[in-house]
Amino acid sequence: MSATDPSAAAPRPARAPAVRSGRRRGSQRRREIAGLLFILPAMALVVTFFLIPLCMTVWMSFHNWPLMGAPRWTGLDNYAAMMKDRRFWNAMNFTVWYSIVATIAIFGVAFPLALFVERTGRATSFYRTAIFLPVVVGFGSASLLWAWLMNVDSGLFSPAAQALGLTERPVNLMATTDGVFWSIIVMVVWKTAGFTMILLMTGLQSVPHDILEAARIDGASRFQQFWRIKLPLMKRTLALALILSVAGSMLAFDQFYIISNGGPRNSTLTAVYWIFSQSFVSFKLGYGAALSMVLLVILVVISLVQLWLLRSPTGDK
């Protein structure tokens, strides 16, 4: 465009400073408008599908809002009822416990894998793909698959264990809380560790080679290189992976709904499951909305704490 603009060819000193600043203001303005136009579609999506529903949820949470019939304003009643809702807080406790265990398990598996696939080698891309593959399976389908694997009569684990002589009788994994809980943890690790692995791998690869080389020349051991250089330099990636993993676990629903139905004896009921159940089984949309708001606040707080813990020591963002 500048090539066809005659003013661009004009000698610079001839231009008055006032005109220049005016032109700059004009072009800056144009750029601002163009920028606004570029983000407008995204803004429209966020407003329509996030902000408006969010405000609607807040509004609903102050009502007795049945699935059928007229809503009735009840102020803070839903929030007061929640304080006494032992089943919600049990579900919340379970969700926190699950999130801690799942996150540790995912990182425990994903970190060694990331170190393993970080190096460039002939087979590495094969391993990366193979380990990442379960991530592209939807949580619903993965849960259905595992529900079958765990089935005591027609599944895989129990009949296989019996055939191998590991157990005398078929063991019903779904019958005990521990059986369900640890089976789901294994399933979730299988399903999501690949994603965390890729995240961590990019973090590891972003560590500048010259720093590592300098460390090597100074005689740092492999462990020291990892602990003192790589780990601190990938803090931001760690924060991202951690927040994604914790937020994902706190919102767990599909696997518990499909595999265990929250059982046995409601012992694997997660917070979102309880919200679903209150909203669409008991038809109390208003109460479900109030529970959702509380879960949202808890999640935001947890995420902020994580960001604060993993902030960069130098103060830059």
């Binding site: 139905n261 929250g262 089984v281």
Partner: peptide
């Protein structure tokens, strides 16, 4: 639903 039919209800539990 709340009492009898729900998978998370008191009847099944």
């Amino acid at each position: 639903n709340d009492i009898y039919n729900s998978a998370t209800g008191p009847w099944l539990q």
